[in-house]
Design a protein around this nucleic acid. Structure first.
Length: 175
DNA sequence: AAGCCCATCCGAA
DNA sequence: TTCGGATGGGCTT
């Protein structure tokens, strides 16, 4: 994992959400990770695996963005602009950042192919690289990589399980 | 510096 | 329907 890291301390909470359990982690600068799953211990392990060398602290205190993030995870936010106001702190290459930024412009209920996304980022040839960047996303739902599917419509893959991806798409399609 | 992996896509058979 | 080639970025060695 590439990092221009200052090994800052990360704080985390686990919430029950519609899809199961969500682990949310943040630094002083903003949200660093949103993982979804079923098993709390597994989520904690995933966090440790993704942020080696960081001190990790559990803290259940309410956060200023808590309500908004919960609403996004539960599919109650339809406007990408609202999600855009959340403080994020994700590290990645310039290419990854540009892909993630483009993802955040896709509204719920819409899907996009990997090649279309490549065009939007100005690298029409870099289709597979775009897929890699999607796969490297650590902010589930907040950065909506689940809205990217193959050109023929098949769902492709999802870091947190294809079932979750399809559940998210089904939820957003009906509105 | 080189090789390997990959959540792609398209055309040919 | 399967198959293989082109393809770019990221990670490991």
């Amino acid at each position: 994992m590439t990092r221009s890291d200052r090994r800052s301390e990360l704080t985390w909470q686990i919430w029950p959400v519609d899809l199961g359990q969500a682990l949310v982690a943040w630094s002083p600068r903003g949200l660093c990770a949103v993982f979804i799953g079923d098993d709390d211990a597994a989520l904690q392990a995933e966090l440790a695996r993704n942020f080696p060398g960081h001190a990790l602290r559990h803290d259940d205190a309410a956060q200023p963005w808590g309500h908004a993030v919960r609403a996004v995870l539960n599919g109650q936010v339809g406007d990408p602009a609202q999600v855009r106001d959340l403080p994020l702190d994700v590290s990645g290459t310039a290419f990854q950042q540009s892909v993630w930024a483009a993802l955040r412009d896709i509204p719920p209920g819409q899907t996009v192919s990997y090649s279309e996304l490549a065009h939007r980022v100005g690298r029409p040839q870099a289709v597979r690289a775009v897929a890699s960047a999607c796969a490297a996303n650590v902010l589930a739902v907040l950065i909506p990589c689940h809205r990217v599917v193959r050109r023929d419509g098949s769902p492709s893959g999802y870091r947190w399980g294809l079932a979750h991806k399809q559940a998210l798409l089904a939820r957003e399609a009906s509105r």
